[in-house]
Each structure stands twice: as C-alpha cells, then as structure tokens.
C-alpha cells in the first residue's frame, strides 16, 4: 500500500492525467497531486493511480556522489 514505483511519463494528456510506463506496463494515472508540470520522459513516483512526486534527478545523482564521498572520507580517515 505504501509501495510506490518510479514510472516514466509517456504522454501528458489534457484532463490532468498522463500515460506512464511502469516497468513495461502502461497505464493512465492522475496528475492532480503534483504542483509542478511534468513532460514526456520525466520520472514520477506513482502510487495507487496518482503521481505523488516528480523525480529530482539532480538529487539522485547527489545521493550517489554522497556514497562516493563516504568511501573517500573513510579512506582519508584510515
């Protein structure tokens, strides 16, 4: 129930909905809980038929960098 799946936007429709691709499965979801616009190829987090947030790709890459930092920091400490 709290499992949401990152999905790719295939097509934004006019009635506040979008066609998304969730691991190969396509379905129409509601965009009514998003305050920002989405466009084709954006990634959104889909939960029970609604996009609840847009992926912040920059932050995703930062998280991976943070990981690299952890390793570097530790090496430095050692």
């Amino acid at each position: 129930m709290c499992l949401s799946i990152p999905s790719r936007v295939v097509e934004v429709k006019e009635d506040k909905t979008a066609l998304v691709d969730t691991m190969g499965v396509r379905r129409v979801i509601s965009l009514e809980l998003l305050s920002e616009d989405v466009k084709e190829n954006d990634w959104v987090l889909v939960h029970v038929g609604f996009a609840i947030e847009k992926l912040d790709e920059e932050e995703a890459l930062k998280t991976l960098e943070l990981f690299e930092d952890i390793l570097r920091m530790e090496e430095h400490e050692n």
């Binding site: 709290c2 939960h47 029970v48 038929g49």
Partner: peptide, 30 residues
C-alpha cells in the same frame, strides 16, 4: 485507483457505492 469508484458509481446510478478507504499518508491525498 480510488477514482475508479467514480466511474463505477456513474455506471450504477441506482446503487450506493461505498469506498472503504485505507492507508497511511500515501493514500490519503488520493
């Protein structure tokens, strides 16, 4: 999706549709 129940209610105007809503904060806005 809970919005499916709007469609079902519209298709069955003579019946009462009860949506039994469950969940934490992830399903409440819906």
């Amino acid at each position: 999706s809970c919005l499916d129940s709007i469609k079902i209610a519209s298709e069955n105007p003579k019946k009462n549709l009860i949506f039994f809503a469950i969940g934490f904060e992830t399903t409440t806005p819906q």
